[in-house]
Simulated assay, not measured.
Amino acid sequence: MSIDIAATDPGRLAALRAALSEEFALQTARLKELTEITADTGDPGEAHNRAALLAVTRRSLEQITGALLRIAEGRYGRCETCGAPIPAARLEALPHARFCVPCQQRHDG
């Protein structure tokens, strides 16, 4: 089922914006915490894990920022490739989704 998010309840969009903003704040705090860790234990595995956590957190912040921007611009819930509405179930699972499933599959190659 596809929905036009622009035509849905404005309260739902406001709640989504609030949830994304809260997640943004949490991820920002996590990134700050990870970048402030200066203790080098000499364990290459620990350094690798920290680097991976930093990368994932930064990617999460990029995705949240993009979703908030699309909401502000009125483009949220539409596929960036074909312009079709992104199904509600996909947006519930991935609020930062930029593409419908067929376009995402083509994008991933």
Rank of each mutant, 00 (worst) to 15 (best):
R98H: 02
T38Y: 06
T81I: 15
R98E: 01
A47G: 04
A15T: 13
A97M: 04
I37N: 05
A97L: 03
T57I: 08
A67M: 04
A72N: 10
Q27L: 06
R50S: 12
G42W: 01
R17G: 03
E80I: 06
Q63C: 04
L61W: 11
I71F: 03
A19Y: 06
R70F: 03
T28V: 14
P102Q: 13
K32F: 15
F99K: 01
L31A: 12
R30E: 12
T57W: 15
D43G: 01
Q104I: 03
L61Y: 05
D43Y: 01
A84E: 12
T28N: 14
E23Y: 05
L68Y: 03
G83P: 12
A52S: 09
N49Y: 05
P10D: 09
A39V: 08
L53G: 12
E73G: 10
L54G: 11
L61V: 04
T81C: 13
R30D: 12
A67W: 00
Y76Q: 03
T57M: 14
A88E: 12
T57K: 09
L61E: 03
E33N: 15
P85S: 15
R90H: 07
F99H: 03
E33S: 11
A84G: 10
C79L: 14
E36F: 04
R106K: 15
A51Q: 12
A19L: 11
R59P: 10
R106H: 09
L31G: 07
P95A: 05
L94V: 07
E46K: 00
A14S: 08
I64H: 02
D108K: 09
D40L: 01
T35L: 15
P95I: 00
E33R: 10
D43W: 00
L54Y: 10
R90I: 03
H96E: 11
F24N: 10
C79W: 07
G66T: 00
L94K: 06
L69N: 12
L54F: 08
E80D: 15
H48I: 04
R70N: 04
G66Y: 00
S60K: 14
A47Q: 07
A88H: 10
L91M: 05
A39E: 14
L16E: 02
R50E: 07
G77Q: 02
A84H: 10
Q27I: 05
H107P: 02
R12I: 10
C103F: 05
A84R: 15
G66P: 00
R59F: 11
A89C: 14
D43S: 01
P95S: 05
Q27Y: 15
R90Q: 11
R30Q: 09
R70A: 03
T57E: 04
R78M: 11
L26H: 15
E80Y: 08
K32P: 05
A25T: 08
Y76S: 01
Y76V: 02
C103S: 11
I86D: 00
C100P: 03
L20A: 03
K32W: 06
E73T: 07
L31C: 08
P87M: 09
T81M: 14
G77D: 02
R75M: 14
Q63P: 02
L53C: 14
L20T: 00
L13I: 11
D43T: 00
K32Q: 08
E46T: 01
C100L: 08
D108L: 06
T65H: 14
R17C: 08
